[in-house]
Computed example of a mutant assay.
Amino acid sequence: MQRRFLVGTALAGTALMLAGISPRRAAAFEVTRSDAEWRAMLTPLQYKVMRREGTERAGSSPLDKNYKKGRYFCRGCDLPLYSSKHKFDSGTGWPSFWKALPGAIGTKPDRTIWGVQTECHCKRCGSHLGHIFDDGPKPTGKRHCINGVSLVFKR
Rank of each mutant, 00 (worst) to 15 (best):
K87P: 05
T32L: 00
W38F: 00
L79D: 10
P139D: 10
R4D: 15
R75Y: 06
R3S: 13
R143T: 08
V7S: 02
H144V: 08
Y47L: 09
R57L: 10
C145W: 05
C145G: 03
I132F: 02
R39Q: 15
D135L: 07
L101I: 09
G141F: 09
G93S: 12
Q117D: 03
T43N: 03
G76P: 07
R51W: 05
V31L: 00
W38Y: 04
L42A: 02
G76T: 08
H144F: 14
G136H: 08
K87C: 06
Q46P: 04
F88W: 15
L63A: 06
K69I: 12
S84E: 05
L45W: 04
F133L: 13
R71D: 15
C74Y: 09
F29H: 12
G91K: 05
A15V: 11
G54T: 02
R124P: 08
W114E: 10
P102G: 03
G70L: 12
G20A: 06
P137E: 13
T118P: 02
S60L: 05
T107Q: 11
T9P: 00
G103Q: 11
R143G: 06
G115K: 11
G70A: 11
C74A: 04
C77H: 10
A27K: 09
S96I: 07
P44A: 06
P109A: 15
S96R: 10
A100F: 02
K123L: 08
A40Q: 12
G103S: 10
I132R: 08
